[in-house]
Write a protein that binds this DNA or RNA. Structure first.
Length: 944
DNA sequence: CGGATCACG
DNA sequence: GACGTACGTGATCCGA
């Protein structure tokens, strides 16, 4: 035969990845993170590609994937596949990678809306068979066995790559007891619990095979039932006839689908190596990469195999170091976006989003404050450039502006609602906490969610310098996609000319809003795969991702403040400030602005001639607290007055005035905004207003805390971790003496004093306390000397003593600096990374600063991980205990504040204490107990 | 808009 | 030989 026998391989990609996930161990990587299924899939394609030159190997090859969850079978039987559990959490992110892998092999990847993979496979197989080709279906799905057999010399068979087994007629007969053409009849009788095909109750594979083999067809078997002897089986066949007939339709493969891509385009000769190498490299599949034509791996390439390590080899300050090879996506095309203006179009988008199981969502609003923001539109993205904007709140904010054609808001939201709440549809956001809160104002719950901002933080904390700590969308788009996104300023203007988003014309608004969703989805695909490879999955999935809705809820709860009390304090402080200002001017002999450190410095040191004025690099005298305290000690009455004035000014402007303005007019409560990505160590930060720095250290300041109150009849409860950072230091540095002290519940600073000085006095305990903190922050003899007001030599002796008494500490510091120097990042006990790009800087100050931060980050970060885990578990635990009325309001790094009915206090205390104390478990078993102090009262101050 | 100052853990 | 001294935040004010 002169013409070569064509042989089409059809790979059932979707079913393969499920089996690979369950059968293969997770890919060995430092974190044991899940890229196992993708790896299995990649090796499978590899094996197939290896057979390209074999006698019976593929001449044509395509991968078929399930795209939609909805098919004609659902129209026949709505419950079809309704029992399918959601894919496991750590499998989900691997789905998009399957497409990447397929593209990396330069193979066609076929998926079609409304068609299941099986139907596409059947249609392609038959089409090829009609042309006289051989066909091999790479799958082990029993439904597909119906297709096996030969027509006019053209053979269809199956290949189970996992078992390396060819499946042809004898194998089918062995499994089902019938020829392939009758497999559908057997399946119709036995049903399938996974796909929710009813079959006939009480009829399993054995009975089904026997019946079909005996009677030759389903119809014949059912027809024979009336003549059967009286039995359970007879009854069931008679009763279940309808079910069986419907099942027969469900298991029938649709063999006449339109083929999205012609057979000829599936021809393959040779796999191009370049894209494949890029893919293998990107995902760290090193053994395959090496096999890819040995000698092909250039030195450069070899160095990039471990992205995390490679980054630290070169210039540590290079933020571009984490740049990944760009995934193959079309360039952003704003012209491709749709403005959704009819319900029909909206319904279509929602249906497609549900089918895709993954959709990026972005809300456009009238305000940056999610507690006051009105929704003006929502954008969705389902794929690259496949994005839309749904406006419903545009125009009409002033009399001049006309309302454009747009949907009714409540109708639009009602249509979006089921998709947003659908547990099988993942919603991807950039800073989802904001959108969650906005949508909550319209009673919309959203779950499950992913957040590209948080993913970026878990990958790259410490690497970025820009706004949003380097995790803002514009920056991520630039860095990862090489694309400059439209900015809010470009669309809405800036300063006085700024217009609300609702006044932006729809075509422009669509470009901006849909682009944001498009970018978000692209970023998600880009970064989610890095998460597993670089070991960020653990902290993202177990800590930060579940925390998002929890923190969102805390923000919505807010806390009540006593406006009258704050107003009283403001007035009181104002009087006192005025009085002090007069005295200060008197003492200075002239009027000046007390709030200007520049003027004050000149008064103190030039005019009044006080000594020890030190100018900083700005050429200005320093007048900070320590300087003024020294002057006061030297007998300068003006210094004390300025100190008092400063304290009162601070309290008034930052707290008593500002907090009154922060009261939300709708809820009459103060709602802070927590940043999940604000602190490089993994801590939260709080803004607008900052409720993590409310005064507590002075009596005057504590009056402000008194203004934080519960609703009438309720109680505030404050629970804080006692000495958590020192406990973690004791554990992490493995210091027996300190661990022992914590185990016995001793005062840790007293114990330190005993160890270092032999005795505990007020003085030695205070010194020990200072040293303990100095350790946590990365000590230097000059720093300690300054704090303790001793000579650097003496401070050095104390440090030496400390290291001698607690040798683990010195080892911990050395080891931490060594690994951070090697890898470029530090790690918490829960795997959170913080990057230190300047740790190798030639600038000594810069380098030493990084070193101190690197010593502190694992401790501060682990503490943050622990309280975050407690927060994630807290409300479910309280609910389980029947305490659904307890509300979690605030987090202040090592403290949680709750509000609850007075009657719940005792039971809630127990639950809160337990959840916090056990928050590290089971992931980490600490050598020290975590002690919790709990207080209650009718103000935040009283609860301490 | 950066620096200085000071509130918190 | 100079550097510049405790980690992590955010808000306010001043003054260029």
């Amino acid at each position: 035969m002169s013409e070569q026998q064509q042989h089409l391989y059809l790979v059932d990609g979707s079913s393969y990845i499920f089996r690979a996930y369950h059968r293969l161990p997770p890919l060995t990587n430092p974190e044991g993170t899940p890229v196992g299924a993708v790896y299995g899939y990649t090796t499978m394609l590899w094996k197939l590609a290896d057979d390209l030159d074999a006698a019976d190997g593929p001449t044509h090859l395509a991968v078929i994937l399930d795209k939609s969850s909805h098919s004609f079978r659902n129209d026949i039987y709505p419950e079809y596949k309704a029992n399918r559990p959601d894919p496991p959490e750590d499998l989900r992110p691997q789905f998009p990678l399957i497409r990447d892998a397929t593209r990396a092999f330069s193979l066609p990847c076929i998926e079609e809306e409304g068609l299941e993979a099986d139907d596409l496979i059947a249609s392609y197989a038959r089409a090829a068979q009609r042309q006289g080709w051989h066909v091999t279906i790479v799958s082990s799905d029993k439904d597909l066995m119906q297709l096996i057999g030969e027509v006019g010399g053209a053979r269809i068979d199956m290949l189970d790559t996992m078992k390396s087994a060819r499946i042809y007629i004898p194998e089918v007969e062995e499994k089902f007891g019938v020829a392939p053409e009758l497999v559908g009849d057997v399946l119709a009788l036995m049903g399938d619990s996974v796909d929710n095909i009813p079959g006939i109750y009480g009829v399993g594979p054995k009975t089904a095979s026997k019946l079909i083999a005996e009677h030759g067809s389903l119809t014949a078997a059912l027809d024979s039932a009336p003549e059967m002897k009286k039995s359970k089986l007879k009854e069931r066949l008679l009763e279940g006839r309808k079910d069986a007939e419907m099942s027969r339709v469900l298991v029938t493969l649709k063999e006449d689908c339109d083929l999205p891509q012609p057979l000829d385009e599936m021809r393959i000769e040779k796999i191009p190596e370049e894209p494949l190498a890029d893919f293998l490299e990107q995902h760290g599949f090193t053994s395959l990469l090496r096999r890819l034509g040995s000698g092909n791996g250039s030195p450069e390439r070899a160095n990039n195999l471990h992205p995390a390590k490679a980054d630290t080899q070169g210039d540590a300050g290079d933020v571009e170091g984490n740049r990944q090879p760009l995934p193959e996506m079309p360039a952003i095309d704003r012209g491709a976006y749709e403005t959704v203006q009819t319900m029909d179009r909206l319904e279509d988008w929602v249906r497609r989003a549900v089918a895709a199981r993954l959709v990026a969502v972005d809300t456009e609003t009238s305000s940056l404050d999610s507690m006051q923001a009105d929704l003006v539109g929502v954008s969705l993205a389902i794929g690259p450039n496949d994005a839309c904007y749904i406006p419903f709140g545009h125009g009409g904010t002033d009399l001049l502006s006309e309302k454009p054609e747009q949907l009714d808001r409540s109708a639009a939201l009602k249509t979006l609602q089921p998709m947003l709440a659908d547990p099988s549809v993942t919603k991807v956001f950039q800073n989802g906490k904001y959108d969650l809160n906005v949508l909550a104002r319209y009673d919309l719950q959203v779950s499950p969610i992913e957040d590209t901002m948080v993913i970026s933080f878990d990958l790259d904390a410490g690497r970025g310098e820009g706004m949003g700590g380097g995790h803002g969308m514009d920056e991520l788009s630039q860095r990862h996609l090489g694309h400059t996104a439209l900015t809010f300023k470009e669309v809405c203007g800036t300063g006085k000319k700024q217009i609300p988003f609702g006044e932006v014309p729809l075509d422009r608004a669509t470009e901006y809003a849909a682009e944001d969703a498009d970018i978000t989805l692209r970023l998600y695909h880009h970064m989610k795969s890095r998460l597993a490879i670089e070991g960020g999955t653990r902290v993202y999935e177990r800590v930060d991702r579940p925390l998002i809705p929890v923190v969102a809820q805390m923000e919505r709860e807010g806390i009540k403040v006593d406006r009258a009390q704050l107003a009283r304090l403001s007035e009181e402080f104002a009087k006192e400030i005025g009085r002090l200002e007069g005295e200060i001017h008197n003492l200075a002999g002239q009027e000046f602005s007390v709030g200007s450190p520049k003027q004050l410095g000149e008064i103190l040191f030039d005019k009044l001639g006080h000594k020890g004025g030190k100018k900083g690099k700005s050429g200005q005298y320093s007048t900070d607290q320590s300087v003024l305290e020294r002057l006061a000690g030297d007998g300068a009455p003006i210094a004390n007055k300025v100190l008092e004035w400063r304290q009162l000014s601070k309290l008034k402007s930052t707290y008593t005035d500002a907090l009154q303005e922060a009261i939300n007019p709708d809820t009459q409560r103060v709602h802070t905004s927590y940043s999940l990505v604000g602190a490089q160590t993994g801590r939260l930060s709080s803004t607008d207003p900052n409720l993590q720095n409310i005064p507590i250290r002075t009596a005057l300041g504590r009056q402000i805390r008194e203004a934080f109150v519960p609703e009438n009849g309720n109680i505030l409860l404050a629970a804080d971790y006692s000495q958590i950072e020192l406990r973690l230091a004791a554990h992490m540095a493995d210091v027996d003496t300190l661990k022992d002290a914590f185990a016995k519940g001793e005062d840790i600073h007293s114990r330190t004093a005993t160890e270092m000085f032999g005795e505990v006095t007020r003085d030695t305990r205070a010194q020990a306390k200072t040293i303990n903190f100095a350790i946590l922050y990365g000590i230097s003899r000059w720093g300690l000397a300054g704090r303790l007001e001793v000579e650097p030599d003496e401070a050095q002796e104390m440090i030496d003593t400390y290291f001698k008494r607690f040798p683990g500490i010195q080892r911990y510091i050395a080891e931490t600096l060594e690994t951070v120097g090697e890898r470029g990042y530090s790690e918490t006990l829960f795997g959170r990374k913080t990057w230190f790009p300047r740790i190798k800087s030639k600038n000594q100050a810069e380098r030493q600063g990084s070193e101190r931060a690197a010593i502190n980050a694992p401790i501060q970060g682990t503490s943050a991980d622990i309280i975050k885990r407690a927060m994630v578990r807290m409300l479910p635990a309280l609910k389980d205990a029947g305490l659904a009325d307890v509300r979690m309001l605030l987090q202040v790094h090592d403290e949680l504040v709750f509000e609850m009915p007075e009657s719940d206090v005792s039971a809630a205390s127990n639950v809160i204490e337990r959840v916090m104390a056990e928050a590290a478990l089971p992931a980490v078993k600490l050598d020290v107990p975590l002690a919790i102090d709990i207080g209650t009262g009718t103000s935040w101050d009283a609860a301490h």
